[in-house]
């Protein structure tokens, strides 16, 4: 297996208090420098709560946001300039809100035509043939092509969004909460479709979600983000079953599960640290039951714990905890 996507020290700092001239007053580190590798044909799940930087990361990966530092390599070739048109041929994006990702004033055919025409320069005949092929793959009827987005249900609109991403012929898809706007019965249809497409076209997925169960069900590996950093990464079946980082444990314990008694795993008020005034040391230590003085002194780095699980923690949990 070779790396389809390799991130090296990728980070994003947003300026705060912009001035007309000169440097901004402060910066918010939305994504701390992080390195990740995604293998060819793999699904990497990324989980985290709101404000953890997962959407910022996703937008950097497709070139919609220029990274502050670091670089993105696709199939071994670095992509330096943040130009969505260059990115678009190699890596595509499926949006969270299926309806608002489709221009309400364009027909589905016009929407599907765009990537074929602008990324691949196909003529009208080739486009028609290609659209037919893609629509067959995502189980959409061709008669939908002359309708407008508002005529579709959320699930159908999300299929159209996936079809558009496929039309660009990219090998890597960033799926940013692709099913969180959908009802559960439709959610399963879309997840299964994504699994089929991956097999059929040999795709690589980065699946971003706040729903741990969904991520676990579709991913090979999972990375847990907290406050802009990866705190744990490892095989999907191990990360939640045997968490190493106390934050992963907290997430897993908070998820409502049928047959588990209700108990708030945290007595304290949970607040994310203030991004304008980040804490020293480990960002999670204020909420962490295992925090000691070491945690306040330095930021833990991501280290291999066991069974190819890595966690950024000075006091990782063991199997017996």
């Amino acid at each position: 297996m070779s790396a389809a996507l390799k991130l090296t020290d990728l980070s994003k700092t947003f300026p705060v208090g912009k001035r007309l001239f000169g440097a901004p007053k402060a910066g918010v580190k939305a994504v701390q420098p992080l390195s990740l590798t995604v293998e060819q044909g793999e699904t990497l799940g990324i989980v985290g709560e709101s404000g953890c930087g997962k959407s910022t990361l996703a937008r950097m990966l497709v070139g919609l946001l220029p990274p502050t530092t670091g670089q993105i390599e696709i199939d071994g070739a670095p992509l330096d300039n943040a130009d969505p048109a260059t990115f678009g041929q190699k890596i595509q994006y499926v949006f969270q809100d299926p309806i608002s990702s489709l221009n309400p004033r364009k027909t589905i055919r016009q929407i599907m035509d765009a990537p074929l025409r602008h990324l691949h320069g196909m003529d009208a005949k080739a486009r028609t043939a290609r659209i037919a092929e893609i629509f067959a793959a995502v189980n959409l009827r061709e008669e939908f092509l002359d309708r407008y987005p508002h005529e579709f249900s959320g699930g159908q609109a999300q299929r159209i969004g996936i079809a558009r991403a496929l039309a660009a012929d990219a090998r890597i898809l960033i799926l940013d909460e692709p099913v969180s706007a959908l009802d559960v019965s439709v959610q399963a249809q879309v997840l299964n479709l994504l699994a089929d497409l991956k097999q059929k076209f040999g795709l690589t997925y980065i699946f971003i979600s706040h729903d741990l169960a969904v991520v676990e069900a579709v991913s090979d590996r999972v990375a847990v983000l907290y406050f802009g950093s990866v705190v744990e990464v490892g095989p999907a079946d191990q990360v939640f079953a045997a968490p190493r980082h106390p934050y992963t444990r907290l997430l897993a314990d908070s998820a409502p599960v049928v047959g588990r008694a209700l108990a708030a795993p945290e007595a304290k008020e949970t607040e994310l640290p203030d991004p304008l005034n980040p804490p020293e040391g480990c960002a999670f230590r204020a909420r962490c039951p295992r925090a000691t003085e070491v945690c306040a002194g330095a930021v833990p780095s991501l280290e291999v714990q066991s069974d190819s699980v890595s966690a950024a923690c000075f006091h990782p949990l063991a199997d017996t905890d």
Partner: peptide
């Protein structure tokens, strides 16, 4: 029964989900 089968549950690992065909 079908709706419950659609919902992935934490701790069951990677798998194919049951889906309900069609729309309400």
């Amino acid at each position: 029964a079908r709706l419950m089968a659609c919902v992935p549950e934490l701790g069951q690992g990677r798998r194919q989900l049951a889906a309900i065909p069609g729309l309400p």
